[in-house]
Write a protein that binds this DNA or RNA. Structure first.
Lengths: 241, 241
DNA sequence: GAATGTTTCTTTGTATACAGAATTTTAATT
DNA sequence: AATTAAAATTCTGTATACAAAGAAACATTC
């Protein structure tokens, strides 16, 4: 197993840990590594050695193991019996599967929200929608990203199904990353905004079927943009997402 | 926190462990406890102490902790910072949410299967379908349960989305348990069989929309039967599922 | 007797230790 | 030089140890 370089992927852990006092070490390590893997700071296919990690993170093996177990159950890391863990490579198939899961679950959430609208949630959705428009106009992409996430989180929460909400939030971390690519597809950002608006209208109309369809469509369009960008990159050079 | 009785919930762990050599202790403990919690052998709301469990399971705290962490990420157990874990009570809302998740995901799986049918899978589905009919006729409910699970697993696998498949299998353990109740609703077992048949026809026709609709409907009918039984039991006495 | 402060005890969170499986290195043999 | 056997090494899996957080019990004050 290749012993890929992992050396400078943990530079700012100490600062991260310091800013999260009272959070148990296992949780800090989990969050930090999850981010590092999703954001490709850790080389895919790389072999992780517990004691190495413990050393780099200035912790003992116990919390490191606990973090690895959690990453494993999420599929970010693959465990080989008695041979340790390997950072999983996110393939195009993985990305497609994640988009599909999101499409289906977000469709469900949107439907439930539409069928049981609540004035406050609706208002929140509308406000964020127009703040988003503004942030796109002003080309403030950091703000746009944050608002985009916030907008979707309102829907996730509105389905009142904690399991769905947790899963969606989890998958959303991937989608957030994928957006870096989809937004490079010309016109995608405005199309995306319009999809949001259409979804909002469906929810406003309390039309569950339509809301589900439009939520699914929104994610499906994102998936499509992503796959387009992906194949472009494969053509450009050997760029790996 | 009530220190409920947990004493004889671990009687047969040794046998279970012996029959699963080479499986790591953490995994054995996880599986065993998962089963115990789902099947209500562990009192809901009960407080679990790591060292107690380790003692009862004849293991050390380390694998016990790892198992508890995994149970936690699945929501079967709730973790209170520095106060240990509590067995989660499955409420009616939980059951309803799980049914909803299954409906949505199974709908997705059924759609994908229909849209990419494969002769072998279709044949497997049909064979099990008729074996199921037979087992119902012969009132062999153990066999019927097994076949029912097998049937659904074919669909789960056919969507070729590992994430969806894993989730569905996971939720299916709950549904399997819930079926003990839904099958007490008169006529439910035959209705259920017919729902399967209709779903099968939709898949055979390669009609993705119809397959999705029928898969959802099947789960929704199960949910309805479950809720009926549940309210009956609440009326009967203080029976807790 | 209620409210508050102090001590003790329990139990988690993390560190460390040790045994044994898998792998690699080294040595020996052909 | 290639092949195999043996030894050494590495790293996981599990056990145990210890520190400190939180809860419970107890004492103290009003």
């Amino acid at each position: 197993m290749a012993n890929n370089d992992v050396n400078n992927a943990f530079n700012d852990f100490a600062a991260f840990a310091a800013s999260n006092e009272f959070v148990p070490m296992r949780e800090l390590i989990y969050q930090y590594m999850r981010d590092a893997i999703i954001k490709r700071k850790l080389p895919a296919g790389g072999h992780l050695v517990e004691e190495d990690l413990a050393g780099k993170l200035k912790a003992s093996r116990t919390p490191v193991r606990e973090a690895l177990r959690k990453l494993e159950s999420e599929g970010l890391v693959k465990h080989h019996r008695r041979r340790g863990v390997e950072v999983r490579q996110l393939t195009m198939k993985d990305a497609a599967d994640i988009y599909d899961m999101c499409a289906v679950l977000e469709g469900y959430a949107a439907r439930l929200m539409a069928e049981n609208v609540n004035r406050d949630d609706l208002e929140a959705l509308q406000n964020i929608l127009y703040e988003m428009k503004d942030s796109i106009d002003k080309k403030n992409s950091k703000l746009e990203m944050d608002l985009h996430q916030k907008w979707h989180f309102v829907i996730y929460a509105a389905c009142r199904n904690k399991r769905a909400e947790t899963l969606l939030k989890n998958y959303n971390d991937y989608l957030q990353l994928f957006r870096d690519y989809t937004l490079q597809v010309p016109g995608r950002i405005w199309n995306s905004w319009e999809e949001h608006e259409r979804l909002f209208r469906a929810i406003e109309l309390q039309d569950g079927n339509l809301a589900e369809e439009r939520a699914r469509n929104h994610v499906a369009m994102g998936k499509e943009a992503f796959l387009i960008r992906w194949s472009q990159m494969l053509n450009d050079d050997n760029y790996q997402v």
